[in-house]
Design a protein around this nucleic acid. Structure first.
Length: 534
DNA sequence: AGCCCTTTGAAGGTC
DNA sequence: GACCTTCAAAGGGCT
């Protein structure tokens, strides 16, 4: 498997072998194409970054302007994130987005999906075979992600949450694990990476009047604007209503204004947070700035459709379990891609919403009734609502599925790189600072992993454990704290559909281990092998 | 209509 | 520092 990084360590420059489930030959061909495309992108981005650096000198006035146009920023961010997190976009994005003039997220999705059921990412859409949906961001060639401290002039400006004054990013924001290099994606949140998608195709609508970047400091200048604009014919360039960012890029972290946003209110979280004593009514009108997606969420968002496509499963709970397994089975490099994306996401988010806190969203969702879980009893194994995953039934030939013709499309890469200390580790936030990659195999608490009908082996103890040439690191936190208490799902998951190939790595060791437990796997509800016994 | 389920990660809070 | 809680996405299931 060719690597893009040329000896500088296992930088993020990897490729997207993780995304492609094709056989190796195809992968290599694909990688070759991607490398070529990346070169083109590199050239463009290099010039763009230089230009944006020039623009950064005028960031003061621009930032003032930006704060006055929070909605615009929000919209920009939304589109950008929607773009790079959704694999579905590539095929029709160019045609649809320039025509968009609707501000809301929901509307945006609708616009992008003339027939939502058909084009929504909730439906297994045929994805671009040669284009990683994240590739616009993951253009990490060696030269773009060579280890080392990024030049100070490339350090993204971050507004101090309290003062609003641009400041030098905190180490937690500029992870030493993700050294940035000049010329590439050095400015991690630099949306040019999003604006310059694969193969020179520009995904974002650029207004005739010029492109305005969400970030002043990173703003694209006129030459870039014209560069990108030239990719669109004039009729493709929408005239954005006053409510829409000049880029026409809505913000993904904001729920649709029609739903929760104040029609003409200031969407800036900073503005909200600084407004003296907002009334409850005003609180209700606050826009819901969503949390930036973490690495796993980004991974899920990308891979869900593939899993769904390969399986008749529709329940997200089951899909997520599969994705959780696959996440653990990813190599460090592969995970690192998503950690990096997530870091960019957070960084971008923090720049757009300097005053935003995750706490702001507390209560946005009704508190989950975890108490119910504790009292939950083991599910009825004979529950009838099992949906077989046809492609992965043990005896079933998978040749019917094009994607699975080579091997299970859901087979994990199974390229554990235990001794690998990837520089592309997740941002050193919290405990991950000590454990960069935070290979978050769940701790199996007191019990040791054995498959029991009554106990619930943790992911680490069951399937994921088999992939533990990777270090198994207990989650420092526990969302699972409460989640670990209930050993079983409240509903039986259609385990018949969760063939081992869906859940497990595919290394010989994994397979051997799986084989020994195969009968149990087949006969037990998923919950019995996925949740750790407590 | 809205919550639940399920996953991991991030962030904030508490002790 | 350890631990806990909540939320982020997703969509079928459930109340």
């Amino acid at each position: 498997m060719p690597q893009l990084n040329g000896g500088g360590g296992d930088e993020l420059g990897a490729n997207d072998e993780m995304i492609s489930f094709k056989d190796e030959g195809e992968q290599e061909e694909k990688i070759s194409e991607d490398v070529s495309a990346e070169r083109d992108l590199d050239d463009v981005k290099s010039s763009l970054v230089n230009e944006s650096e020039n623009n950064s000198s005028s960031s003061d006035s621009e930032q003032t302007e930006r704060r006055s146009q929070p909605r615009a920023d929000i919209e920009s961010y939304e589109r950008a994130r929607e773009y790079f997190t959704e694999g579905k976009s590539l095929l029709y994005l160019q045609m649809k987005w320039p025509l968009l003039d609707v501000p809301g997220t929901a509307t945006l999705k609708d616009s992008r999906s003339p027939t939502p059921g058909h084009l929504s990412n909730k439906v297994p859409v045929v994805q671009h075979a040669h284009m990683h949906p994240l590739t616009p961001l993951i253009t990490y060639s060696n030269e773009h992600f060579s280890p080392g401290t990024p030049p100070s002039h490339l350090s993204p400006e971050i507004l101090d949450p309290k003062t609003g004054i641009p400041r030098t990013p905190h180490p937690a924001e500029l992870s030493p694990y993700y050294p940035l290099s000049p010329g590439g994606m050095g400015q991690i949140p630099h949306p040019l990476g999003w604006l310059v998608p694969q193969q020179g195709q520009h995904m974002y609508p650029i207004t005739a009047g010029g492109f305005r970047h969400p970030y002043q400091a990173l703003a694209m200048n006129a030459s870039m604007s014209s560069l990108v604009s030239s990719r669109f014919s004039p009729h493709m360039v929408p005239h954005h209503p006053h409510s829409l960012h000049r880029t026409g890029i809505p913000h993904p972290a904001i729920v649709s204004p029609a739903v929760k946003q104040e029609p003409n209110g200031d969407l800036s979280p900073a503005a909200h947070s600084k407004s003296p004593g907002p009334t409850k009514k005003e609180e209700d009108k606050k826009p819901h700035i969503k949390k930036p997606l973490n690495a796993f969420m980004l991974y899920m968002k990308e891979m869900r459709a593939k899993v769904v496509a390969e399986c008749t499963l529709k329940e997200s709970a089951a899909i997520n379990q599969i994705l959780g397994r696959r996440w653990h089975s990813l190599s460090r490099e592969e995970q690192a891609k998503y950690y990096e994306l997530a870091r960019k996401e957070r960084q971008l988010h923090s720049q757009l919403y300097p005053g935003w806190s995750a706490r702001d969203n507390y209560g946005k969702r009704k508190k989950r009734k975890r108490d119910n879980k504790i009292d939950s009893t083991p599910e009825d194994f004979s529950a009838p609502n099992k949906k077989p995953c046809v492609q992965y039934l043990p005896q079933e030939k998978m040749i019917d599925s094009p994607a699975s013709s080579h091997s299970s499309m859901l087979d994990s890469p199974a390229t554990p790189s235990a001794a690998l200390a990837s520089p592309a580790a997740p941002a050193p936030t919290h405990s991950e600072q000590a454990q960069p990659l935070s290979l978050t195999t769940k701790p199996d608490r007191q019990h040791h992993p054995h498959f029991s009908l009554l106990s619930k082996p943790s992911p680490s103890s069951s399937i994921s454990t088999f992939s533990s040439s990777q270090p198994s690191i207990s989650r420092p936190t526990s969302s699972s704290g409460s989640q670990l208490t209930p050993p079983l799902l409240s509903r039986p998951l259609p385990f018949a559909s969760l063939h081992a190939s869906l859940l497990s790595p595919s290394s010989p060791f994994h397979q051997a281990a799986l084989h020994s437990h195969h009968a149990l796997f087949q006969s037990q509800p998923l919950s019995l092998v996925t949740k750790s016994a407590d």
